[in-house]
Simulated scan of single mutants.
Amino acid sequence: MFDPFRDFATAGYLRNRFAEKDSKIVQELEHQMFRASLEEAITHLSRRRGALRYEDFLAVHRILFEGFYPWAGEDRATTAPDIAVTKAGTWFCHPAHARLAVQEGLRIGNDRRLMRQRPGEVTGLFAYGHPFLDGNGRTMLVVHTELCHRAGFCIEWHRTSKSAYLTALSDEIATPGKGILDNYLLPFVGEGLHRQVWGGMLNGLPGLDGQGPDHAVAGNYANAEVSDQYREFERRRDYRIGR
């Protein structure tokens, strides 16, 4: 079980405000918070002038999940600075580098021309950064949708396949910069949509309810074996920031 705070017995799964331990109830409550707060998160981004920043990424997570998690809006550098986190065999970046990965995604995404060319690479960087202990997918979807909107298009997510998308995303994280997720997403590019319809569109997407493989703590980075496995994953990724 994923228990980075090591207080599951007293604070429930991921130290939630209700000290709830049942995974199904946790997923339902978390998703209810997301649905209730989605419009506020969309409004926050719509009011931002200029390029989106890492602080906006944190703010979206806080808005979406602060009703459930007291640590909402705090990244892993704060909540779990020494813990290696994996999911379904995928390693996410070191907590100290989460900001850098997301910022690189934002650097590309804030450039309208690049965003139209590389929407999958942006998604992959957000996913690899994995700034939060939970709620990353929904947070990055909201931010990504705003970046697409600013670039004049949308991803027609309802036409995608969850399993095919997740496979492409895992491959993108493992071997970034090769256009894997770009090639998957570009056929689903459509005309830009007014923000007023985003809430209904995003709320209606399958696969956003938190169901799926749980996170796993691979161990502490102080452990030589864990550190070596992470370095090897990074070596195979071979991705240069700012390319």
Rank of each mutant, 00 (worst) to 15 (best):
T145E: 09
T167Q: 00
H194R: 14
G12L: 08
H94M: 08
T139L: 05
W157N: 04
S163V: 00
G89F: 07
R235C: 01
E20G: 09
Q117K: 09
R62E: 14
K87S: 06
L185K: 05
R231M: 10
N223P: 08
E146K: 08
L186G: 04
I63M: 05
D82P: 03
G137R: 12
I83G: 03
D171Y: 04
F233Y: 05
E156I: 07
E55G: 06
G190V: 14
R99V: 08
K178N: 12
Q103W: 14
D209H: 04
R76S: 12
R240M: 10
T78S: 14
L29G: 15
C93H: 11
L29I: 14
T145L: 07
T123E: 05
W198Q: 08
Q117L: 12
C154Q: 09
L14K: 03
F65S: 00
G177S: 06
L169M: 07
V60F: 01
I108N: 00
E104Q: 10
R118S: 09
Y221E: 07
S37V: 08
Y230G: 03
A96E: 14
Q32V: 15
Y239K: 07
L114C: 03
V197I: 14
D214E: 15
G109Q: 00
E121V: 04
N110R: 09
D182Y: 00
F188C: 02
R159M: 00
A216S: 13
H149W: 11
E225W: 11
R53T: 14
P206K: 05
T90E: 05
L141N: 03
R76G: 10
E232Q: 14
H130L: 08
Y69T: 07
A72G: 06
L114S: 02
Y54A: 00
T86K: 13
A98V: 10
E234K: 04
R150S: 07
G212M: 02
D111V: 06
Q103A: 10
E234W: 00
Q32R: 15
T167S: 03
F68R: 13
R236M: 12
Q32N: 15
P131T: 04
I25Q: 14
L193S: 09
K24L: 13
V142F: 06
P81E: 11
A168N: 02
H158V: 09
